[in-house]
Design a protein around this nucleic acid. Structure first.
Lengths: 213, 213
DNA sequence: GTCTATAGGATGATAGAC
DNA sequence: GTCTATCATCCTATAGAC
């Protein structure tokens, strides 16, 4: 029953990776949580690096085609409205990742964040190599929406935006606890995205540029 | 010469922690870079955890009193202007950390970012326990600047803002690489902060609220 | 495909000589 | 305070029996 073992390894690995990070998660933890033998990871995936990429691939292969579709059907608008459209258009495919796996959206974004902050060089290569065109498409749509903002300024804002999202996910357990205790709110990933969209849209569309300090 | 050894360990440790993260940096790397004996870390600091806290303490003890001063002398303004003031007011003490150590600001924020994303529980306790009052002061100043925004909405935006900053620093090596490769820019920490302030100020001050998806 | 056993290293921490 | 030597424990990866 190879398929079962392989799937169980991926399921266990992604949960542990998302929670603890790649470097801090050992093969022993993974195989123990998956109830499979330690050696089976190397049999099925070859190495830990390959396992990490396989975990992400399952999500990217669902997400990216949907983003491509969205980009194709989107009628470009300029300014804040165009940015809003784009972000809303991204939100839906992201939420569809919940179909891959219960809690899939949250897991995926956490995996992304950990990949960024741990310097997993092989991950960047893997993502850009396999899904670079979609990312390029997103960027050019953003450039159309904000033609007055220089490319390098857009680069900065995009990363700040990603940071807002990824960090919120990375510390989502803390956020959930605080929100429940202080504001009597139960938070789901939809809520995070709903609050995030106006914040990011506003920040990205800002007309003032960097100023000397 | 205890003092020299202790200082050399801290210097070497903070550089390695900022670059690689806490978990990925071994005592052997630290002592080798510092040119001291392996056992001296445990002699002077007791444990790796204590060393991590000592590294951060050197920066916090400079930063936080300056933030306190800033908060005391600040004349509160409302709206986007008040937010801008507050962020600018934070930027200067942060940049003063370059006096602690060459490249001190960058190192400090990277240390913070790594501490957030690696789940170093002891670090959060250490920070809140020792510098919680300053953080509370910052929060109440923000509430004065944006009285119309409900507390829970402010809570969200604050975390998005922190996320932009921390994430940008935690992944600053990646950002530098990309910026140099794609935009021929050499990035300094001032640049990150200068680009970040308008983005965050604009996002925090946004008048639109969360919308159902 | 799955298992045990183990190679071959790295890690944090410490005992004890100097 | 500084050193060497070492303990005990972790790690990834693999060889080889079943």
């Amino acid at each position: 029953m190879s398929k079962q073992t392989k799937a169980r390894i991926i399921d266990a690995a992604e949960a542990l990776f998302a929670e603890q990070g790649y470097g801090q998660t050992s093969m022993r933890e993974i195989t123990s949580k998956a109830n499979v033998n330690l050696a089976s990871v190397n049999y099925h995936f070859g190495s830990k690096k390959n396992l990490i990429q396989a975990v992400l691939k399952r999500y990217f292969d669902v997400l990216m085609p949907q983003v491509d579709d969205m980009l194709e059907t989107l009628i470009p608008s300029q300014g804040r409205k165009g940015v809003d459209q784009l972000l809303q258009g991204l939100a839906l495919p992201l939420l569809h990742l919940n179909a891959v796996q219960p809690n899939g959206t949250e897991i995926f974004v956490q995996l992304l964040g950990k990949g960024y902050t741990e310097s997993q060089g092989h991950l960047r290569k893997f993502i850009l190599g396999n899904y670079g065109e979609t990312i390029e498409g997103l960027l050019s749509m953003l450039r159309i929406a904000l033609p007055a903002i220089p490319a390098d300024e857009l680069f900065w804002r995009l990363h700040f935006a990603i940071g807002s999202f990824v960090f919120s996910m990375a510390s989502s357990q803390a956020l959930k606890d605080i929100a429940k205790a202080d504001y009597q709110q139960d938070i789901e990933i939809q809520d995070v995205i709903a609050h995030l969209v106006p914040f990011v849209a506003q920040g990205i569309s800002a007309e003032g540029y960097a100023r000397e300090l």
